[in-house]
């Protein structure tokens, strides 16, 4: 027995001894948006196989969590890059600066389309307008100068062109960056288009209250907020033939055999229509880089330039094939990384 105990004690000693001289990190560490994750992992994989540097490690967990981690400080046990499906907020830049992360390089990698899709054999949801979504999902609507709860239960009540199916929309929950885009580009837009915004202003509401009313979503079961990923939305759609889900373009492109996409404002979502700016619901994707880590962590700058190189992020590259909409201003981004220009 005593032999065993001595062996265990030695093992503990060995573990703690190596802990004391933890060696320097040789791979790039990335965290952040789950929307950017597939793109980042495709790039990381190609980077690892084409360069002598090890494959970067990509964590997921959401834009906000990633940026929070990013802003924790500079050092080897801090991440080098934060992926984000939205631009960094001023408050986050401040937190970063407080913790010594003051030189941040902002890299826009391209655009992501947000699409509205339903079961392929389900009701004929083929064309939507933002106005219809606002009318279907608003928590309260203005009727005769007063705000009353939204009681529309059927899409055909909203618009006769829509199928006779109950309103059941699977929308991203507030933990997703996608929700912000959905609120701004669909609900707010619809609110404005339908004249509801004007009506609310006329009724004496101030601008902030109007916007809030426009973007508040009903919680009587017609709109289901999805906390998880698009796979969860897809599962919910499979169980509800009448449901309509909000997806990323890349996710839809991978599941065209089970999903049917609807046009928004008459435009079909494709990488081309999004790149041309015709399709209304899209957003830029970013990653943020600590300049202080360049030169310390091997391969960091190479990874960043590889990510935005034409053969990766350009048209026809693996990212575009997967569903990323290439950024027309990619050349500017490339030179920005080359010169290490911070925000």
């Amino acid at each position: 027995m005593s032999v065993k105990l001595t062996a265990s004690a030695l093992a503990i000693a060995a573990v703690s001894a190596t802990g004391a001289n933890a060696q320097s990190r040789d791979q790039v560490q990335i965290a952040g948006s789950s929307t950017v994750l597939p793109y980042a992992s495709i790039v990381a994989e190609a980077f690892g196989e084409n360069f002598d540097f090890p494959t970067p490690v990509v964590q997921s967990g959401g834009s906000s969590a990633g940026l929070a981690q990013f802003c924790e400080g500079v050092g080897e046990n801090q991440i080098d890059i934060a992926n984000a499906s939205r631009a960094i907020r001023d408050s986050e830049v401040e937190t970063c600066a407080e913790n010594g992360v003051d030189e941040i390089i902002e890299v826009r990698i391209g655009y992501d389309g947000i699409v509205f899709a339903s079961q392929i054999d389900g009701p004929e949801f083929t064309a939507f307008e933002p106005e219809q979504w606002y009318n279907a999902l608003a928590a309260e609507k203005m009727v005769d100068g007063e705000m009353v709860a939204n009681d529309a239960m059927n899409w055909s009540e909203i618009d006769e062109s829509l199928p006779d199916a109950e309103i059941l929309a699977f929308i991203p929950a507030t933990n997703h960056g996608t929700r912000e885009v959905f609120e701004e580009k669909v609900l707010l837009q619809g609110c404005e288009d339908s004249g509801a915004m004007q009506a609310m202003m006329d009724a004496g509401m101030d601008e902030d209250a109007t916007e809030e009313a426009c973007m508040s979503v009903r919680n009587d079961g017609a709109a289901v907020e999805i906390q998880g990923d698009y796979t969860e939305t897809l599962n919910r759609l499979n169980q509800n033939p009448n449901g309509v889900g909000v997806f990323g373009l890349a996710f839809y492109e991978n599941n065209t055999d089970t999903l049917k996409v609807a046009t928004m404002s008459g435009v079909e979502p494709t990488t081309e229509t999004i790149a041309a700016g015709d399709y209304p619901v899209s957003r830029p994707l970013y990653f943020y880089l600590k300049k202080a880590h360049i030169g310390v962590i091997p391969g960091l700058k190479e990874y960043a330039s590889f990510f935005v190189s034409d053969e990766i992020a350009g048209a026809g590259g693996p990212l575009a094939n997967y569903g990323l909409v290439p950024d027309p201003e990619l050349a500017a981004t490339q030179s920005m990384i080359e010169n290490e220009e911070t925000m």
Partner: peptide
């Protein structure tokens, strides 16, 4: 493991 960064894409 989620919070200590092990929920990640690791190829090496």
């Amino acid at each position: 493991l989620l919070l200590i960064g092990m929920v990640a894409f690791v190829r090496e």
